[in-house]
Structure formats: structure tokens, C-alpha cells
């Protein structure tokens, strides 16, 4: 599966457009991480626990989007976009969407 956030794939030609595919997830870290992040806020710096949270969420959202694309019979997803929203404190929503297409290698 080719995943790009541009409209075209270099060296490929889009032969069929399947439509919008999307994946979302909302994840939270356990209370211990929230407390640790709260303490870390005092001195500043990277909140490793929350970085991890975003990495996990991004991976899961992307996986779900790709599963949808596969179901449609696409072999590539173009123009991928990510958005996040803060639905509740200490949790992250990650949403990714793109256009599922069938792309063929140019001769």
C-alpha cells in the first residue's frame, strides 16, 4: 500500500478513484502518566508519556484507514491528512483521512 500526502504519486498513474477513507481513535494514558506529566509541566520539557500516546494513536488511526482502503480494493491512499481534537482532558483523538485510489506504475 502506497501512502502519500500529495495528490499524485511519482512514477505512478491513478487509474481509478475509490473515494474517501478514514480512521480514528481516541486514547488515554493511565493516571500515573497524567500525574507525571503534571509534574513535568513544572520544569518544562518533553512529556514522553504523551508523545507515546500520540505515536500509538497515530499508528492505530492510520492502520484503520489502510484497512478501509484495502476493503475498497485500492492499492494506494493519496492526499493523506491528519487532524487531532481534544475531546476530554488527558486523552487524544487522532483522525486521518485520505483518498483511496488504484495506481498503476507508468511504463
Amino acid at each position: 500500500m502506497i501512502v502519500v500526502n500529495t495528490e499524485a504519486i511519482p512514477g505512478y498513474r491513478v487509474t481509478e478513484v475509490k473515494g474517501l477513507v478514514q480512521g480514528n481513535t481516541i486514547r488515554a494514558k493511565h493516571l500515573g502518566r497524567d500525574v507525571a506529566a503534571g509534574l513535568k509541566n513544572l520544569v518544562g520539557g518533553e512529556l514522553v508519556g504523551y508523545t507515546e500516546l500520540l505515536v500509538e494513536a497515530r499508528r492505530q488511526a492510520l492502520e484503520r484507514m489502510l484497512a478501509q482502503a484495502e476493503q475498497l480494493g485500492a492499492n494506494a491512499v493519496v492526499n493523506v491528512r491528519f487532524t487531532t481534537s481534544a475531546i476530554t482532558q488527558g486523552a487524544a483523538e487522532l483522525y486521518s483521512y485520505g483518498t483511496a485510489v488504484v495506481a498503476q506504475e507508468e511504463a
Partner: peptide, 16 residues
Amino acid sequence: KKLVGGELRTFETLME
């Protein structure tokens, strides 16, 4: 669920 962490499925349906 936020106390233990992980996926918050009840909010996922809201966003969907």
C-alpha cells in the same frame, strides 16, 4: 477508563 489508559471507545462512537 482514563484512569487505566487505553482506547476510549465510548468517545470514538461520538466522533464517528
